[in-house]
Design a protein around this nucleic acid. Structure first.
Length: 902
DNA sequence: GAGCACTGC
């Protein structure tokens, strides 16, 4: 009965709808031809509204009925009271579901048996292995528990750009990201605030789902046992006070409130003591954890105490650009001045200071460059090196220089600020400078270790994530992984497994984050987590220091990271997965205690924490190419034996310094006496590796400085120019090969990329079409502009000679001549000078050409020794440009071809 | 036929 009734009504509705459509369309037609009088329009409109009202009512009735039916089907006891049809429908559905469930179970059983059989001898990949495990778990759960609820209504996160089989639809994904760029007029960066506001107000389509953990207990086949080891200290009460203050703050004027807030910082009570200590000692080591307010307050205190009189500035260095900007803007607010006036910042490409500036926040590398201009730092009365524990290359050199400077500038005050641990070491280095301690403000963090060592940390990380998700109270999870590849694998497996759990478990929003991820996709991690769901952030080391994510309550630390190592003997760089240090582990754990009480799960045992991990990570200066460092120091008059006596806090290997000196000597940057030559002085102006600087300086002779600085800019942005998504590798490779026309080599290809981009009017769209990363290109443009400015400074004319590729290559050779290799019989290469076997990197455009003699940009050790960025050259050129380095004997075999290398 | 952690000038 009911069915029939409904269907008749449906027909009626359809009729009315058609009528309405006809009416409205004819109405529009007539209206357009403007023949209708107002009255009739009104009549038509009334009719239209009436009809619409009717349709609305019908729809809402429908929804109501639908909802009722749903409610009924949920509650099986109420089924009897319903219409026969409904009961029938429900029963049949139950039967259907039951059957489907049985079938699924049978399938799983078969699958597991098959897999088990296959297991012997067959090696499964990471994904396959996890997949199998997941299937087993699902089987366990399904076979033990009642089946009905788990199957239907498989929940999917709206706007997940992947289909049900787990295949990521990259195109769809990026079409969203690219929407911003489709209109060339909106290509400019949107203001940061606007972006932030949008991010903050963005609503998720996800449901506020109720957790059904009461109904089920998940049976994980693999469960990792953790031991709660200890609780890392924190101080919570201060935070509550601050929140109370924050609330009362609203009514008062902003400035007043800011001043009030300043007084609430832990450092405030130490103000006078601190100023006294600064007054008494030339060097002071300050220990204060994040949140103590040292970065923002100390410079202000010093200013208030009169250290900025006589027009001298207070410098405060930060290891990162964003930190310098944000701290400067905060302090300018607190002081009630405009950013760039009394308080300013100075970073590469951007100098936001003026003559009025007295507090200058800057990146540490920037202060290092200032040393070149004013070796005595005359315009500063105080230098504060912040975040010194991070031990970047620049801070380490700054330490040496500042210590060196102390006798000449007794009035200069030096503050070294660091977060715990190293304080003693800093103090010892600066001739037992006093240590000033400021208590920090952080929530306590519970540290858990595994009971037994985990064989596969990736797998353990996944299991732990799900374990936390299923058993722990709400709060986001942060997982530290080593690189892009791992992140992608884990993301895939997690998604797969979550899909298996269906609706029985709260949503898990997976956010990958690494530096090379396009900016649009990076923004995802800052979106607030919808209620009822949980966010898991899969991050590289970027989350250790560079960015802070709110709401993180759980940290999973597998204990590994990728580290760059440099071998000065071979000049080879390699990126190795290695265990982290205790200091880094502590830093990682601390990321969970920023907004509330946190927990850190370490996927290694307490024993190996104590016995296997180093205390501190080896500072960068000990594992990097020192070419630029030696050039800078030489420019400051630290040359020859002084270079080897220079007081580094942790001296780099002697070999590394020797190698750098040798190179500079070969490049005619140093003379026989070890003094800087005119060439060397010009080279030091460029913030680049000496080889690139030399290439630019040499371009003057070949009249192609325009092209060469483009190449230098492209090479110094590194290897993130070409974008190569997993599912479009062929297209990306084809696009890349377009720049290799004529096979001038990879250097020329880079030039082609830059010039084409320039011709496209720096279009973002062009980048997407050619699989090129916009961010890298913009960076290259910035660097190029800076280099062009510096050319003027060293009085090199900007000349273009784009048709003469040989001239460009010769300029490159002038800088890179030690990097030559010639082909051997079997397609491998051998370096001309030190006879090491190397290979052309597969990303090069010359992999199929294999010229007899090549020049490379850098050597990397991955699976083999690879040359990256390769260009064909001629032996005559090497003999012409570097006669002191090569002699004809080196190339005899090339011309006679008789001798063969095996 | 291979992989690219993170900064900074």
């Amino acid at each position: 009965m009911g069915l029939k009734k409904r269907s008749r009504r449906g027909v009626q509705d359809e009729k009315k709808e058609r009528e309405l459509k006809r009416k409205t369309s004819s109405f529009q037609d007539e209206y357009n031809s403007s023949k209708y009088v107002d009255e009739e329009i009104l009549k038509d409109q009334n009719e239209k509204e009436e009809l619409e009202q009717h349709l609305r009512e019908r729809d809402s009735a429908k929804t109501r009925r639908f909802a009722e039916r749903k409610k009924v089907s949920r509650n099986s006891n109420a089924a009897k009271d319903n219409e026969d049809v409904e009961t029938l429908r429900k029963v049949s559905r139950q039967e259907y579901l039951k059957k489907r469930e049985e079938k699924k179970l049978q399938e799983l059983r078969d699958y597991i048996e098959d897999e088990h059989y296959l297991f012997e001898g067959a090696k499964l990949s990471e994904v396959e292995y996890c997949d199998l495990r997941h299937k087993k778990e699902t089987y366990n759960i399904l076979s033990k528990k009642e089946l009905l609820k788990s199957v239907h209504n498989e929940y999917r996160i709206p706007e997940a750009f992947d289909d049900r089989n787990g295949v990521i639809n990259q195109e769809k994904r990026f079409s969203v990201a690219m929407q911003r760029y489709t209109d060339p007029n909106t290509e400019k960066e949107e203001p940061w605030e606007e972006h932030q506001i949008r991010k903050a107000t963005l609503k998720f389509g996800s449901k506020n789902k109720r957790r059904e953990s009461d109904d089920y207990q998940f049976v994980f086949e693999d469960h990792i046992d953790f031991i709660k080891a200890f609780v890392m200290d924190g101080d919570k009460s201060d935070f509550e006070e601050e929140i109370a203050l924050e609330k009362s703050r609203v009514k008062r004027s902003v400035l007043e409130a800011l001043q009030e807030e300043r007084k609430k910082l832990p450092i405030y009570s130490f103000r006078d003591e601190l100023l006294q200590a600064v007054h008494d000692h030339p060097v002071l080591v300050i220990v204060g954890e994040t949140g103590s307010g040292k970065t923002t307050q100390i410079p202000q205190y010093l200013h208030e105490a009169g250290y900025t009189k006589h027009g001298r500035m207070i410098a405060c260095t930060q290891p990162r650009r964003v930190a310098a900007i944000s701290v400067a803007s905060r302090v300018s607010q607190e002081m009630g001045v405009k950013l760039g006036h009394e308080v300013g910042y100075s970073i590469r490409f951007e100098d936001c200071t003026s003559k009025k500036t007295i507090l200058k926040y800057m990146t540490d590398g920037m202060l290092l460059r200032e040393f070149l201009v004013q070796p005595q730092l005359e315009s500063y009365s105080v230098v504060m090196v912040d975040e010194a524990h991070e031990r970047t290359l620049s801070t380490d050199i700054l330490f040496g220089l500042v210590k060196d400077l102390a006798p000449a500038r007794p009035d200069l005050k030096v503050l070294i600020s660091s977060a715990t641990l190293d304080a003693e070491k800093f103090s010892n280095y600066f001739d037992l400078a006093p240590i000033f301690k400021i208590p920090g403000r952080r929530y306590p963090v519970e540290i858990h270790f595994t009971k037994a060592p985990e064989a596969n940390y990736l797998d353990a990380a996944i299991v732990t994530t799900l374990q936390i998700h299923a058993t722990q109270p709400p709060g986001d999870i942060l997982v530290f992984l080593t690189g892009q590849e791992e992140i992608e694998t884990v993301e895939e497996i997690l998604k797969h497994r979550m899909r298996g759990f269906g609706t029985k478990i709260a949503d898990l929003i997976i956010c990958p984050i690494y530096a090379n991820l396009p900016t649009e996709l990076q923004a995802k991690i800052f979106e607030p987590t919808p209620e009822g769901a949980r966010k898991v952030v899969l991050a590289t080391n970027i989350a250790e220091t560079s960015l802070t994510i709110d709401g993180i309550k759980y940290v999973i630390d597998p204990g590994f990271c990728k580290m760059k190592c440099y071998n000065p003997r071979t000049g080879m760089e390699s990126l190795l997965v290695s265990p982290i240090s205790k200091a880094a582990a502590k830093q990682r754990a601390g990321r969970s205690g920023r907004t509330s009480y946190g927990k850190c799960f370490r996927l290694y045992t307490a024993y190996s924490f104590l016995n296997d991990l180093e205390d501190n990570t080896a500072p960068e200066i000990q594992r990097t190419n020192l070419g630029n460092v030696v050039l800078t120091l030489s420019c400051l008059g630290i040359e020859n034996e002084k270079l080897f006596q220079f007081e580094f806090m942790d001296p780099p290997p002697v070999e590394a310094i020797t190698k750098a000196v040798e190179l500079l000597y070969a490049q005619n940057a140093l003379n026989v006496g070890g003094k800087l030559t005119k060439v060397g002085r010009r080279m030091a102006e460029f913030p680049l590796d000496p080889m690139l600087s030399k290439m630019i300086v040499a371009s003057e002779k070949y009249k192609c400085s325009d092209e060469v600085i483009s190449i230098a800019a492209m090479l110094s942005v590194g290897n993130s120019i070409f974008y190569r998504p997993k599912d479009k590798q062929v297209h990306a490779d084809n696009a890349r090969m377009n720049f290799h026309t004529g096979n001038g080599g990879d250097h020329i290809a880079h030039l082609n990329v830059y010039n084409s981009w320039k011709e496209s009017n720096y279009s973002t769209r062009w980048c997407y079409e050619n699989y090129i990363q916009v961010r890298s290109m913009k960076r290259a443009r910035d660097i190029r502009n800076q280099l062009a400015g510096l050319l003027e400074r060293v009085e090199i004319e900007l000349t273009s000679n784009s048709n003469d590729l040989d001239a460009i290559k010769k300029s490159i050779i002038s800088g890179f001549f030690p990097h030559s290799a010639r082909m051997q019989k079997n397609g491998s290469y051998r370096m001309v000078k030190n006879l090491q076997t190397v290979y052309v990197h597969p990303s090069s455009g010359l992999t199929k050409v294999l010229p007899r003699l090549v020049l490379y940009n850098e050597l990397v050790l991955t699976t083999k020794e690879y040359m990256r960025q390769v260009t064909e050259i001629k032996p005559e050129w090497l003999l012409e440009i570097a006669p002191h380095f090569y002699n004809p004997k080196h190339f005899e075999e090339l011309s006679s071809k008789k001798t063969q290398w095996m």
